[in-house]
Amino acid sequence: MTGLVPQVAGAADVDDLVALIESAYRGDASRAGWTTEADLLDGQRTDADMVAEMMALPGSVVLLLRDEAGAALATVNLRDLAGGTVYFGSFAVSPRGQGRGVGSALMDAAEAFARDRFAAERMRMTVIDQRAELIAFYERRGYVRTGEREPFPYGDVRFGEPRTDDLEFVVLVKEFDPQAV
């Protein structure tokens, strides 16, 4: 990665965030990258109202990484769940930034931000169980499966239209080394 630094996103960034998240996960454009969910879900991944709601949640911060030209390149939502746990979600890297270290660099920055801002001791995330390659990426980054599962929000088209009836989320957690600063 080129040393770009993520910034805290604001209301003016909502449309760019929606376009970025959609490009990473849904539709034909997402097939250019490896994070696509297009084989599992049709429809949208998010919309402007959902992004605005996410940004407005107490303890929620959206980080946005833009490239040298100012285009949205990667994003992640961090939400303080209390007790030293921060939720890591809505992680998206533009297909044009995938495979270049952008995602890993943003994860590093997000984890540091969570430790500094929220005194995080651990990160928690959910991933669709069928996303084996994505889960393997997170496991290489130190996240482990907890054994917990959460239901997919079937019937809520705001999260997409499932192509199968067996989707569910697995929970992954990364514990931070208390000696690391």
Score class of each variant (00 low, 15 high):
112 A>W: 09
91 F>W: 15
26 R>C: 08
46 T>D: 00
110 A>D: 02
64 L>A: 00
38 A>P: 13
84 G>E: 01
116 D>S: 08
45 R>P: 13
60 S>Y: 11
84 G>W: 15
84 G>Y: 05
84 G>V: 00
42 D>C: 11
28 D>L: 01
61 V>D: 15
61 V>A: 00
54 M>F: 09
120 A>I: 02
24 A>R: 01
80 D>Q: 00
49 D>R: 15
66 R>C: 14
57 L>Y: 15
114 A>R: 07
103 G>E: 04
81 L>K: 14
80 D>H: 13
114 A>S: 01
119 A>P: 08
47 D>W: 10
26 R>W: 03
63 L>I: 15
96 R>W: 14
116 D>K: 09
59 G>S: 14
69 A>C: 02
59 G>F: 09
38 A>E: 11
110 A>Y: 11
48 A>Q: 05
62 V>A: 04
101 G>N: 00
64 L>S: 10
83 G>K: 06
34 W>G: 08
99 G>Q: 09
82 A>Q: 13
109 A>V: 15
89 G>A: 11
75 T>Q: 07
120 A>Y: 00
97 G>D: 01
84 G>A: 09
110 A>M: 02
45 R>S: 09
95 P>C: 06
88 F>I: 05
79 R>L: 01
85 T>F: 10
47 D>S: 04
45 R>C: 09
109 A>L: 06
24 A>S: 03
64 L>T: 06
40 L>H: 14
81 L>T: 10
33 G>T: 10
22 E>A: 06
62 V>H: 03
40 L>M: 12
120 A>L: 04
118 F>M: 01
40 L>Y: 15
48 A>M: 11
26 R>Q: 08
76 V>D: 03
25 Y>Q: 07
83 G>Y: 10
61 V>Q: 12
81 L>Q: 06
78 L>N: 04
44 Q>E: 07
44 Q>C: 11
95 P>K: 02
91 F>T: 06
67 D>H: 15
113 F>W: 11
60 S>F: 11
45 R>D: 15
36 T>C: 01
47 D>G: 00
73 L>M: 13
29 A>L: 04
42 D>Q: 10
114 A>F: 05
121 E>V: 10
50 M>C: 11
34 W>P: 12
62 V>Q: 03
101 G>P: 04
62 V>T: 02
30 S>F: 01
89 G>Y: 01
117 R>K: 12
33 G>F: 04
26 R>P: 01
37 E>I: 11
21 I>A: 04
84 G>D: 10
117 R>Y: 07
104 S>N: 13
95 P>Y: 02
61 V>L: 00
99 G>I: 12
83 G>R: 12
48 A>L: 04
33 G>K: 03
92 A>Q: 13
53 E>C: 02
48 A>W: 03
90 S>W: 05
119 A>T: 00
95 P>A: 05
43 G>F: 01
55 M>P: 05
37 E>L: 12
31 R>T: 11
56 A>I: 07
21 I>Q: 04
49 D>K: 09
110 A>S: 15
23 S>L: 06
48 A>S: 10
31 R>S: 06
68 E>D: 10
39 D>S: 12
116 D>F: 03
100 R>D: 04
56 A>T: 15
82 A>M: 12
